[in-house]
Design a protein around this nucleic acid. Structure first.
Length: 365
DNA sequence: ATTTGTGTTGAT
DNA sequence: TCAACACAAATG
């Protein structure tokens, strides 16, 4: 099952008998701090990211400034990482430019992981008196998502957008049974990867994280150091179409990659940075490989964009969603092109995304 | 070349 | 559980 590092309890998350909000006191700074950070001037300072870089500091080995916030750790480049612990294991929540953003990410995670009265950096979220629609909806939103999903949103910085979209849907009277991905069948999920800009760019290749490559797609002759003849692998998509990719190891970058054939997949599916490709394998003896992807929505103005393309050919129009009867824009110009070499950081901000598991084709046909 | 985020360790 | 530190993996 994916990376279920979390003992997920998604649907029944709050057995938390936790009622008594104890801490009226602001327990904000604690972190094993040890370091008071020479009084962290609130705001005013310009770019925090630049701050660290600018520090000539006195000692050769720069001690990174510890954070005053719980769950927040400094990064070598001046940015901030957020993390939370679960069962003796660290769960990384992503990196942020602002220390406070990292702290907020931790707050979201800790409330999802440990319940309403968990210790937070800022607002306990349920501090909002009795009825605060905003807080309540967010609470509901959190409960409706698995820990893994929440972590994913935080890492990709899509939490705000997903929350907003959730609220939209919610308000439009919808008993929508939430995600339903019935038994997926005889397949086992191997792993997933959110494609990077370069995975869908001109390099025409998909980097398979080493960890997964060596575990699921071992290359003949040994992976790590051997040369790279490469092999051809066939993957079937949700529409039954078979895709053949060349799979090899690149010594230059010490990476496992899918090359020949990959660009076609990107183009036909209209893959964009941030979309998630998933790899499965049938449990039967045939070990047939499968590939699918989760597109992202272009929430912006609230439109819901199907995949920007073409997939129409293979889609079984199930009784799709009838909620957004409005604009079904066709954004993604696969060719749209401009990527511009701006701040990638900002590009990474993606709006909400929907996971399009194959629709339940089973029940209908 | 940079940045992320994992491995590890010592402290609480 | 939690964060400091070091550094391999990932990304561009």
């Amino acid at each position: 099952m994916e990376t279920s590092i979390f003992t997920d309890d998604s649907t029944t998350p709050s057995p938390s008998p936790s009622p008594p909000p104890p801490p009226p006191d602001k327990l904000q700074r604690m972190g094993s701090g040890t370091r008071v950070v020479t009084d962290p001037e609130p705001s005013t300072s310009s770019s925090s990211a630049a701050a660290a870089a600018a520090f000539p500091s006195s000692s050769a080995r720069n001690k990174l400034p510890s954070s005053q916030y719980k769950g927040v750790v400094p990064q070598p480049n001046g940015r901030w990482g957020a993390q939370i612990y679960e069962k003796h294991q660290r769960v990384w929540l992503g990196t942020f430019n602002e220390e406070t953003d990292a702290a907020r990410a931790y707050d979201v995670a800790v409330q999802r992981f440990r319940g309403r009265d968990a210790v937070t950096n800022f607002k306990p979220l349920c501090d909002s008196v009795p009825d605060d629609p905003a807080a309540e909806s967010e609470l509901a939103f959190l409960s409706s998502r698995s820990k893994a999903e929440v972590v994913d949103m935080l890492r990709k910085h899509t939490y705000p957008d997903e929350l907003a979209q959730s609220r939209r849907v919610n308000s439009s009277s919808h008993p929508l049974p939430r995600r339903f991905c019935g038994a997926t069948g005889p397949r086992e999920q191997l792993f997933e990867k959110a494609v990077t800009p370069s995975d869908v760019g001109k390099l025409n290749r998909l980097v398979i994280p080493k960890q997964h490559a060596e575990k699921y797609f071992p290359i003949q002759g040994g992976g790590g150091g051997s040369a790279c003849k490469g092999v051809l692998l066939n993957f079937e998509d949700s529409g039954g179409k078979v895709w053949r990719f060349r799979y090899s190891y690149w010594n230059s970058s010490q990476s496992y990659v899918l090359t020949k054939g990959w660009s076609r997949f990107v183009k036909e599916k209209g893959l964009r940075a941030g979309d998630v490709v998933g790899f499965q394998r049938s449990k039967g003896g045939d070990k047939q490989l499968y590939i699918d992807f989760k597109a992202r929505t272009v929430g912006g103005g609230g439109g819901f964009v199907g995949f920007g393309l073409s997939v129409a050919a293979q889609v079984r129009p199930v009784q799709v969603v009838r909620l957004f009867g409005v604009n079904i824009v066709n954004g993604s110009g696969g060719g749209g092109g401009g990527e511009g070499g701006k701040r990638l950081r900002e590009m990474e901000l993606m709006q909400g995304r929907e996971w399009f598991k194959k629709q339940c084709i089973q029940s209908l046909r």
